[in-house]
């Protein structure tokens, strides 16, 4: 299949960027989206041009490295799928694709389609951890967790921190990411001692980074490759109110 790509090109953090148009020829429908870009890059390198820079690592949909806003949707059109697991069969021969970096003030573009998602790391550093000793593997079984809480916590723990929620949000809000991290720990007994301090610190850091606020449109949930529910955000808000009233 043949496609026309409009790709954001930007030399570095300080330079201005612009869209460049490339023809992707003889693409197999079995290729992943990133493999398609690899093919385009081989062509660019053969012509002596700089390849398109994009983030990728595991290419198995579990690391959270890949990104890309594809025709206005983070990770492209397939539901619950990262860009690396998105296959070209999801597109049609002759399609025109607009490929942009995830856009948010806290996600500065480093080069082309690569953005710095360090803001997420700093939100985690602010409180996305537990300080209690959890013992050896078998000790986990000595702390009972009811099935419903375990399942819900696990659904939030599935967050890979890719930033699709921020990219999809019209306000570039990091609410779903922050809430998933807060809620996954807040539902488990090990997360209780720091529960209130955690929500206050992580929410403060989220604001400090310059992310927008949640408008409850739920575009984040629709874009999330791990299909994390916005119930996490309701839970975060609830914990935030309780923690604020308790004053810690």
């Amino acid at each position: 299949m043949n496609l026309t790509l409009h790709v954001w090109r930007q030399a570095d953090r300080r330079s201005g960027g612009a869209f460049a148009t490339y023809e992707a020829r003889d693409i197999s429908e079995h290729m992943s989206f990133l493999e398609m870009l690899d093919v385009v890059n081989e062509g660019l390198e053969a012509r002596g041009e700089a390849p398109i820079a994009f983030d990728h690592d595991c290419r198995e949909g579990i690391c959270g490295a890949c990104s890309l806003q594809i025709n206005g949707v983070p990770h492209g059109p397939d539901k619950g799928t990262t860009t690396c697991q998105l296959h070209m069969r999801s597109f049609r021969d002759g399609d025109t694709l607009v490929i942009e970096p995830f856009r948010a003030k806290p996600f500065p573009v480093l080069r082309d389609l690569v953005v710095d998602r360090g803001a997420f790391d700093r939100i985690i550093e602010a409180g996305g951890y537990i300080s209690v000793r959890t013992g050896q593997a078998q000790d986990a079984n000595s702390t009972p967790v009811n099935k419903q809480d375990a399942d819900e916590a696990f659904s939030y723990a599935a967050c890979i921190g890719c930033g699709a929620c921020v990219a999809a949000c019209k306000n570039a809000s990091a609410s779903l990411f922050t809430a998933a991290k807060i809620s996954h720990l807040g539902l488990l007994p090990q997360g209780q001692p720091e529960r209130h301090q955690r929500v206050l610190s992580m929410v403060a850091q989220m604001d400090l980074e310059g992310f927008g606020s949640c408008t409850n449109q739920y575009e984040c949930e629709a874009a999330c490759p791990k299909e994390i529910s916005v119930s996490a955000i309701a839970r975060m808000n609830r914990d935030f109110v309780v923690a604020s009233l308790r004053g810690r």
């Binding site: 003030k105 306000n171 927008g212």
Partner: peptide, 21 residues
Amino acid sequence: LTQLNRAARPVDYRVRTTQVS
């Protein structure tokens, strides 16, 4: 909130497709 939200995305997308809004 509008001020903060606008500041959060200084460079807008060329294409933004909403799915559930």
